[in-house]
Every structure is written in structure tokens, then in C-alpha cells.
Write a protein that binds this DNA or RNA. Structure first.
Lengths: 333, 333
DNA sequence: CTGTTAGCGCTTTCAC
DNA sequence: GTGAAAGCGCTAACAG
């Protein structure tokens, strides 16, 4: 099959390439007669314009980059899907380039470079906490940057995130209210903003409940399932076990259950609060309380913000950055 | 920030654009001296080559399209991730464009057109069953097409899929062996190849077990959670309830559990076999037997195939198509 | 070893 | 209303 170009179509239709282009884009004046003729020629030939050439000429890639720290986490994939839907809805042929940093700063750096070379019009970043200068440079360079879910200290950029502090405080108070005195905390890495915020909330909760946070019950995990398994293993195989656990993300909560099972404990051995939902929590009638986030909404907000920024003048005139905060809810039952 | 081009770099470094290009691509001869100078200039300026221009010139987009019928299904996202990893591993700057057809032929058609315009080098399709001519045309047009998970009748294309028939037969025999006589079947739409194959296997299973498949126990669902809910509702709210259910995909199985819960049945009311794993099946000690698929492996095979085809001459010389079959396993316990 | 140059396929002034 | 022509940023012959 010969690769067709706009010139082939022009030749076949007996008009100039400019006319074809005008028909394709619905721009400029074209008589109805010619338009129809061109359109039928296009159909007859099965011609498809080359989006790459178009992008080069227009200096618009019509693509948005998204970097998530974990493609296997349903939370981020839900965000991704919402963003994708939102930008596709615009109908302007936008699409999403999804990259996975796997919580690795180096991979994140590569992903940023990659997206920059692809000339994405905006980068949505749920970051590892690293690459601050590069992110700033990207923003200064005129690529819109929106931080999603996670912020980066010292950068003034658009942000759509959740309030991690207050609901975490509430969670600890809730557990204390149920009579727990030995509450373990499985944290995320403190390089990640959400992990820091969640921990801050936890501390506030302990204070409010008049409890002393016991160092050996505070474990720094890594937001992975394996991390959750390791954490619960450590907690349950030494004296002074906890009676309740606050777990800073969904994957680690899953790990906690896997670990409990592996250790031979009943799954309802502990009261657990999970920051972030687990798909099966509605079926899983253990002593599990969920802090329900709203990835759908977050993704929509991000998409909306991205498309709006696209309209505004690039970089330079960009007025104040925007910060939108969503509020997760502790689902007591 | 001024957008830098290769000419700016050339000017700054006092050499020609060709030299810059050679340094960038590691092609042709460049003296070590000049190379270093150019590289430091590039770094100093913070120059990033424009991948769009490069793609246009080289007539290689370095992108692969993937169309899945359901982005929310972990099965397909696992496939996607495996494909992505595999093509990124090549190190040639390849990336994946993921599109969601939402089981809708029209959306699938749009996605195909979109990817064709983006000049993706290959399309990986887990299809709805429609758009046969378009898919054929894409393949004829020189875009490699690999069917993943689902085949399309009458098309001779590369395929990586699972054997749905035999393990489904086995599942029914297994349920019959546990003494069940009233076994319900929740099918997928018969426009989808996997649904047809799974149903064929189910019928073989009934025959082998010497059971009569009862029409009112065979329900055509749609591979969605809602479909599963609707199906189990229908089955359980009329006389002659089943005692076991074969459920043709993971999402519908989830729906079955949601439905049972909603109807007030205990979750272990029925023996259930699910084609396709549920994330929590290992924790969920109900009467659930899973047919374990291997999306990781499928994705890797697809990625491998795609990258190999890329090496071979395009379209024309493409020798025989390849069909790889994976074998899911019934996990009895 | 390095520079000059001709495009890749399209859009977009600017003439007519 | 339509066409001619100049690039978008890069790479790849081809000279030198």
C-alpha cells in the first residue's frame, strides 16, 4: 500500500494541497462543490492525514504527558482514565502519554525528558519528590506542569491534591475512640509529600487522643504491597503487638492482609484504617475502615486545568498558579 | 524561554546542524573533541531535540498503539504495562498509546483512525469484534497489527491469545464433579471471540459431564460488573436457583458477589468458577475457584512480537502470521 | 571528519 | 475561492 500524502490527494482531486488542507481543517473558504469533491476523493483513496507532520507545522503536539509512580495502583490508573476522558472530550484530538516512574527518581527524570522531547503541551506529575530543578525548568520552558496528588516543596505550580492531614488525624482519633492504645502506623517514604502529610496528621491525632506515639510501632513502608507485608511481619512477630493499624496507602493495606494471612493470623485480628480504598473493601467484612479518596474527581480537575491552561498564553503571562484541594472521607460504619 | 532548535545549538557551538545531529544520534564520524564541545553546549543551553521533527524526517513514530476494551479492568492494564515495559526495554524511545474502546465498536473505530493518523508503527488490538475491514485495511496499509487476547474471525493477523475452550470445559466438569446439577453460566457477548470460545468450552463440559445445559441458567452478560449484578439478580430471584455458577470474566464475577450481597445472600451461597482472577481471590476464602490467566506473559509476548515485526520488512514481505496461545489454569484447591 | 542541502507532510500567509 | 511557496526541526545523502 502506497503511503498517501496530501499531494496525492490534491493531484487526484485536481486541486492544490492548500485546498485539501482547508477541507481537512474546515478553515478558510472552500466552495461547497469543491469541498464535496475533495471529501469523496479522500474517502475513495482512503487518505489519512499525518498527525506528526501536522504537529510539526502547527507546533502543537496535542498530547499531554502523565507520570505516575505506580501503574499497577488502581488509584493512579483511575486518575489517568479520568484525565484521558476529560482531554478527549475536548474533541481536539488530544491524547495522554502515560509513563510509570515506579517511585524511582531516575526513571522519573527519564520520563520527564522523554515527554519534553515529545513536546507534550503539559505534564501531569504525581511525583517521587525528586527532580525539582528539572520540573521547574520544564515549567519555565513553557510546558504547563500540574502536580497531581503529590506536591513538591518549593515549587509554585498548579496543584490538584487531597488533604491528607486532617482525615489522618481523624483516623487516629477514631481508632483511639474504639479503645485502642497500641496503634501502629505504616507510613510511606517521607520524601513523598502525601506520606509526610499523612504522618503529620497521624501525629496530630495521637496528640489529640492523648496517646504517646510509640516509636517501635511507627514503620516506614514504601507504598508497595511488599512493604506492607514486611511491615506487618515486623509488627506481629515481636512482643508488644499493636491492636490497630493505620496504613498510609491502599497497596500497603493489601500487603498487611497478605502478611497476616501468611503469618497465620485471622484477617480480622486487627482494626485497620486504610488511606485509600481497596476494590474489595465493600465485600470484605473485616475490621477495615477506609479513607475514601476521589481519584475520578482529581483526574477530572487535572484534565480541566490542563485544558484551560492550554487556552491561556503560555508560560510568560501565566497568572497565579492554582491549588485545588479535595477532601477524602473517613468511612466509619 | 526561547524554544531552542538544532540551529541554535549549531550556531552556539560554531559547527553545522549536521554535526549536532550526528552527536545526538551517535551516527557518522565526529571527532572526540568536537563531540565533547557539542555535548557541553547542548547541556549549557538545555537543549532537547524535537522528537516530532525527528519522527517526521525518519518516518518512524516510535510509538505503538494499544486498544483495550476496558481500561478499568486490571487484566488489560496488566497487559498494557507488560507491553509498555517490553517496548521501552528496547531503549529506542518507543512508547505506548493506550486507548479505551469501552467495548464500543464506534469508539474502537475512532481509536483505530486516531492511531493510524498518529502513524503508530503497530496496533495491538483487544477488539470488540467489529471493524474487521478497517483492521484489515490497517494491516494492508503497512501498520503491523497484533490481536491480543481476542481474535477476529476471517482475519489472518498475528495473534497472541489464550486457550479459552479447554479450561472452560474443565471448569464445568470440575463443578459437576463436586455434585452440582444446576450450574448457571454467565456469558460474555457472543460477538467477542473469547466469549464464544468460553461458551463452546462450557458446552463441551456439560456434554462430558452428562448434564443438560438448562437454557434459563445460561445468561448473556457483557463482561461488566453491572452485567454480573444483573445476571445474578435474575438467577437468584426466580425459582430453580443454581447451586453453582461459571462466570466468563473477572468483572462479572465481581458483580456476582456485589449482587449476592445486595440480595442478602451469604457470599458463599454458591460455588463459583471465575474465568480470570480477582485481585483479592487469595484473601477471599469463599467458594471461589479461579481460572488463572497470564496477562503479564501475554503482554510480553505481544511486545516481543511487535518489536520483532518492526525489524522485518513492512507489510509486503511479511511472511506467515504468528499465532501464540497461552494456557490458563483452573486453580482447584 | 564536517558542511551544504534537500526534503519528511503538512499549514498558512500572500497573491491572484 | 484557490494556488504557490515558504517553512516547522530534524536527518541523511552527497560533497569536500
Amino acid at each position: 500500500m502506497p503511503k498517501l500524502t496530501i499531494r496525492d490527494v490534491a493531484q487526484a482531486a485536481g486541486v492544490s494541497t492548500a485546498t485539501i488542507s482547508r477541507v481537512l481543517n474546515g478553515s478558510g473558504y472552500v466552495s461547497a462543490e469543491v469541498r464535496e469533491h475533495v471529501q469523496s476523493t479522500i474517502r475513495a483513496l482512503g487518505y489519512r492525514p499525518n498527525a506528526i507532520a501536522r504537529s510539526l507545522k502547527q507546533e502543537k503536539s496535542r498530547s499531554i504527558g502523565l507520570i505516575v509512580p505506580d501503574m499497577t495502583n488502581p488509584y493512579f490508573m483511575t486518575v489517568a482514565r479520568a484525565v484521558q476522558r476529560r482531554i478527549e472530550r475536548e474533541g481536539a484530538g488530544y491524547h495522554l502519554l502515560i509513563m510509570d516512574s515506579a517511585e524511582d527518581r531516575e526513571k522519573e527524570r527519564e520520563a520527564l525528558h522523554f515527554l519534553l522531547e515529545k513536546r507534550v503541551e503539559a505534564i501531569v506529575l504525581a511525583g517521587t519528590g525528586g527532580n525539582r530543578e528539572l520540573v521547574q525548568a520544564a515549567s519555565d520552558g513553557g510546558t504547563h506542569v500540574v502536580l497531581a496528588d503529590r506536591t513538591i516543596d518549593g515549587l509554585s505550580l498548579d496543584v490538584v491534591a487531597e488533604d491528607n492531614v486532617d482525615v489522618s488525624r481523624e483516623a487516629i482519633v477514631y481508632l483511639a475512640g474504639r479503645g485502642h492504645r497500641r496503634i501502629a502506623v505504616i507510613n510511606g517514604r517521607q520524601t513523598i509529600s502525601t506520606a509526610r502529610e499523612r504522618y503529620a496528621g497521624v501525629c496530630a491525632g495521637f496528640a489529640q487522643a492523648g496517646l504517646q506515639a510509640e516509636p517501635e510501632l511507627i514503620i516506614e513502608g514504601d507504598y508497595t504491597r511488599q512493604g506492607g507485608i514486611a511491615a506487618i511481619r515486623a509488627l506481629m512477630t515481636r512482643p508488644g503487638r499493636p491492636t490497630a493499624v493505620y496504613c498510609a496507602n491502599n497497596e500497603m493495606t493489601f500487603g498487611v492482609y497478605l502478611g497476616l494471612q501468611e503469618l497465620g493470623f485471622p484477617l480480622d485480628e486487627l482494626d485497620i484504617v486504610s488511606f485509600g480504598d481497596l476494590e474489595f473493601s465493600s465485600l470484605f467484612h473485616q475490621r477495615l475502615t477506609v479513607i475514601r479518596q476521589n481519584p475520578e474527581r482529581l483526574g477530572e480537575e487535572v484534565g480541566e486545568l490542563v485544558m484551560r491552561r492550554r487556552g491561556e498564553g503560555s508560560g510568560e503571562a501565566a497568572a497565579g498558579r492554582e491549588k485545588r484541594v479535595l477532601y477524602p472521607k473517613l468511612e466509619c460504619r
